[in-house]
């Protein structure tokens, strides 16, 4: 699942997959702006069949945050 997430993030934000590490910050490290964050979340929702609220988008800071949110949303199964 992490590999799929990495690939979506790299594709949506136009960065190399090697830049997408759990510590990477979306805005500071991967150059995302607020609209890119929404678009990326919409792609994640489509891929994993989860729903991420507007507040949760605003709270997403790093790739690791996204990973744990999706894991918890999918019932902890990774």
């Amino acid at each position: 699942m992490y590999d799929q997430l990495k690939s979506i993030i790299a594709d949506q934000l136009g960065v190399e997959e090697t830049q997408v590490t759990p510590e990477a910050k979306f805005v500071a490290d991967l150059g995302a702006d607020s609209l890119a964050m929404v678009e990326m979340v919409m792609a994640i929702e489509d891929k994993f069949g989860v729903r991420i609220s507007q507040q949760e988008i605003k709270d997403l800071s790093s790739v690791g945050d996204a990973l744990s949110l999706i894991k918890s949303r999918m019932g902890g199964a990774a």
Binding site: S34, L35, M37, V38, E39, M42, Q54, I57, K58
Partner: peptide, 11 residues
């Protein structure tokens, strides 16, 4: 307006 919310709605 809430730009992110509007963006998601609009798409």
């Amino acid at each position: 307006m809430d730009g992110q919310e509007v963006f998601r709605f609009a798409v």
